[in-house]
Design a protein around this nucleic acid. Structure first.
Lengths: 214, 214
DNA sequence: CATTTCCTCCGTCTCAAGGCTGAGTCATAA
DNA sequence: TTATGACTCAGCCTTGAGACGGAGGAAATG
């Protein structure tokens, strides 16, 4: 059986070298390339057509999410294993939705990672227990995030609130009357189930709604 | 000359193994131990008395900051090199204040890290250019962060505001009169140079003041 | 001892915030 | 056509927020 062709994408030089050094001792795994950014990783994946990709999420040029989406278009059969430090919801689910095959943490032992690569090549998913726990929570609570109930306009207003604007400033910014702003604010408060604009601002920050404008 | 005795502290198994694997090829560097948490790292440092410690900042049990402070008490001559992914102000300066000797990023090449270890053993600091830039900014702008002007009590109140509490709720939580809360809030608003509590809440979230209670 | 800082509390006053009710327009779907 | 939802705006009303000024006690500091 041919060795498994693996591509390693991580902007941390020591991590990349470390993984590669270790994996070189595995007989049925062959490192065919490495990249230090999401962009380079996507390019290399297209050119080299690896069986498995070890992908970091947070990188300086092109996140692992974007790279994963890109690679799934050009190499739909490639199994992408996310290998990162984070296991919070906001990171995990976008990655899995983008097409990631497995999700490992960097606290995993080198053996576990080698095992995950072999399983991925055979079509078996590997999800870290901590990550799996987060997934179960998501499944157990099918209630959608409250802010998904918001209309586009309400979301705009919520972003303004999250930036500390007053109703008056919002009305000027969005070219609408202050009464309209108040209506939106009221609807937002009831939909998010919070008591005042300050709590709404907190909600926006905690749920990552401010990232685009930060 | 004796080889440099190095201790590696990082909760990411692949990072630790990777660094060690690489550094083993360096003749004048000897890995005398490794730890996967800040607590273990501090214990090992006390027992083994290494010349240089490679220390991650974010770990599951005991942060690198705490471990660094601890180690500086027991092993004041040990040079601690912070090796992490982050180069924002909030991470860098506490580490240097705690007694870190050098500050490297994980994007550094393995050669640079080996070089930093040798320089640290000789008493030369190594600061990553990106981190150095942040330091220069701090020096160029001697204006301290506004929230450093806050008193302890005011900081408590600000945290409450950041959690979306009303003045009334704050007064109950802190066992003080509502008038007192209002006084604190007014002082906070003027010290932070913001107009209302919502902007204060935003400030608290953006400047990482909410991390303890999140 | 004198000064400063911090925490505490009071009264007054103004205004933004937000609840409640109602209503007109427009686009899309049934 | 009718119904529905989103966006818009209005009036009325209550209350919390915040500014301003004043003040006392405790503890650190010079």
């Amino acid at each position: 059986m041919d060795p498994i062709k693996v591509l390693v994408v991580d902007d941390h030089d020591v991590v990349r070298k470390g993984i590669i050094t270790y994996l070189m001792t595995e007989e049925d795994i062959e490192i065919i390339g490495e990249a230090s950014s999401g962009f380079d990783g996507a390019d290399l994946a297209r050119d080299l057509n690896p069986d498995v990709i070890l992908m970091d999420l947070i990188m300086e040029n092109g996140t692992g999410i974007d790279a994963t989406e890109q690679i799934m278009k050009t190499n739909p059969d490639t199994k992408i294993i996310i290998l990162t430090s984070y296991y919070d919801d906001e990171k995990v689910f976008p990655a899995l939705e983008a097409g990631a095959f497995s999700y490992m943490l960097k606290t995993s032992s080198a053996d576990e990672i080698a095992s995950a690569i072999k399983k991925a090549a055979k079509g078996e998913n590997v999800i870290e227990p901590k990550v799996a726990g987060a997934m179960m929570n998501r499944i157990r609570t099918p209630e959608r995030m409250p802010h998904e109930l918001l209309t586009e306009r309400e979301l705009e207003v919520l972003i303004c609130i999250g930036n500390g604007l007053t109703n008056n400033e919002i009305s000027e910014k969005l070219y609408i009357g202050i009464k309209t702003v108040k209506t939106h604010v009221s609807n937002i408060l009831s939909k998010l189930d919070v008591q005042d604009r300050t709590q709404a601002a907190v909600y926006a920050h905690r749920n990552g709604l401010m990232k685009e404008t930060k």
